[in-house]
Computed example of a mutant assay.
Amino acid sequence: MMGSEEKSPVVIRLRGIGKSYYIGKEEVPVLTHIDLDIHKGEFVSIMGPSGAGKSTLMNILGCLDRPTRGSYELDGHEVANLSDSELAYTRNRKIGFVFQSFNLLPRLSTLDNVILPMIYGNLYKNERKERATKMLESVGLGDRIHHMPAEMSGGQRQRVAIARALINNPAIIMADEPTGNLDSKSTREVMEIFSRLYQEGKTIILVTHEIDVAGYASRHVILSDGHISKDIRGPLP
Rank of each mutant, 00 (worst) to 15 (best):
M118W: 12
Y120S: 11
V11W: 05
S184L: 01
Y22H: 14
S50V: 11
M148I: 08
G201P: 01
N81W: 10
Y124N: 10
V79Y: 04
Y124A: 15
D75G: 11
D65I: 01
N122L: 11
F43A: 12
N122K: 15
R93Y: 00
E189K: 13
G154Q: 04
K54M: 07
D65R: 00
S20K: 09
T68R: 05
I228L: 12
G142Y: 02
G96V: 04
V98G: 01
N122G: 14
K94F: 00
I172D: 02
G142L: 07
S83A: 02
D183S: 12
G142A: 05
A161L: 08
E151P: 02
G121K: 10
E42T: 04
G48C: 11
A88D: 14
M58K: 00
R69S: 15
M118D: 09
I145R: 05
L104I: 13
R164H: 10
R13F: 01
R196C: 12
A165T: 14
E127Y: 11
H39N: 14
M135T: 12
P170H: 08
E130Y: 07
S195H: 12
H33I: 10
D176V: 01
I193C: 02
M148K: 04
K129Q: 14
S85L: 06
T68I: 06
Q158H: 13
P29C: 03
T68M: 00
L57Q: 08
M152R: 02
Y21V: 10
G62K: 11
I228N: 09
